[in-house]
Simulated assay, not measured.
Amino acid sequence: MLTNGHLERTVIDWIPGMPPIKLGDMSSFVRTTDPDDFGLRFNEEEANNCTKANALILNTFDELEADVLAALRAEYARIYTIGPLGTLLNHAADAIGGGLSLWKQDTECLAWLDTQQPRSAVYVNFGSLTVMTPERLAEFAWGIAATGCPFLFVVRENLVPGGPAALPPEFVVETDGRRCLATWCSQEQVLRHPAVGCFLTHSGWNSKCESVASGVPMVCWPVFADQYINRKYACESWDVGLRLDEEVRREQVTAQVKQVMESEEMRQDAARWKAKAEQAARLGGSSYKNLQSMVEVIRSFASDSKKAEA
């Protein structure tokens, strides 16, 4: 069994392209002591499959992970960084309607955000897979309420037994008039809304990319998989996030959210990353060029296939 002390004390400093990292910040899939663990074996298999691929397509951009990408490019002939993917594909998504999410979305929250002051609101969303107990949800709820900030709280129907109805009735009454509850939303639109000043997130990669691309600093509470590494980069490499302990305490939730909301330095760092993300995704940027190159290669494959059939 891996104790919290062991996870914090053990430092891994031999991964190419990565800074020294505590075991506790590694993917939960590789922290198991069971050699037959499904997650560990699955990740091992997928990593080995990558070595057989003609190319790797990654939802990131060059400046965001320069050292890691340099190490990967030393091993793989073709790597296409085409992120932030949402930024790059926004126009196409608008053309077909509905955006990239497959979930039913609540658009009323955008109208609610329109009534809030710039950078005044906290956005809370734990992604599409996270689940928690009603007790933990209550700690988050009261912690957010104590900040005094207006907030948009996404509570999926399957986030907790009972869905949004599991929120403490006293919390619902006390925060009336300064909160919006939704079961899902268009996250990119929410993060790009000028009223949003902080994102309380599970630290999934898509959420991290969307937050960086929108210039919104974060409070990070990872649950499993790569979310721990994503948190480390957000908080220590990009300087756009603060950590929450695994055991949720309402007092810490309040303190970390307020610190993010009040930090001009963190807001400036987030704005710089937003500018870099936009530069990568716009016409002539690195991600834009990589997408063009990838399409050209795919077209060449199709052309070669037709010639072979002729």
Rank of each mutant, 00 (worst) to 15 (best):
M1Q: 10
G5H: 11
R9Y: 07
V11E: 10
V11P: 04
D13T: 01
G17V: 08
L23K: 08
T32S: 14
P35L: 14
E44L: 15
E46K: 13
C50Q: 13
F61G: 04
F61D: 02
D62A: 12
A71L: 02
Y76H: 14
T81R: 08
L88V: 08
A95C: 14
G98F: 12
G99N: 09
T107W: 10
W112C: 08
L113F: 01
T115N: 05
Q116D: 03
A121K: 02
V122A: 09
G127H: 01
S128M: 05
V131M: 14
P134G: 12
L137W: 00
E139Y: 05
W142H: 11
G143R: 01
I144H: 02
I144W: 01
A146G: 08
A146M: 07
C149A: 13
V154S: 03
N158R: 11
L159P: 00
L159Y: 00
V160F: 03
P161M: 13
L167K: 06
E170D: 09
V172T: 12
T175D: 04
D176P: 05
G177V: 04
R179P: 00
R179G: 07
W184R: 06
P194V: 11
A195K: 00
V196D: 00
V196W: 00
T201P: 00
S203D: 08
G204W: 01
K208I: 14
S211Y: 00
G215A: 09
G215S: 10
V216L: 03
D226K: 04
N230E: 04
Q252C: 07
Q256V: 01
Q256C: 07
Q259V: 09
Q259G: 01
E262S: 15
E264M: 13
D269H: 15
D269S: 15
A270P: 03
A271W: 01
A271D: 06
A275L: 08
A281Q: 04
A281R: 04
R282Y: 11
S287Q: 03
Y288G: 08
S293I: 03
S293W: 05
E296S: 13
E296D: 13
V297A: 15
R299H: 11
S305D: 11
K307C: 09
A310R: 12
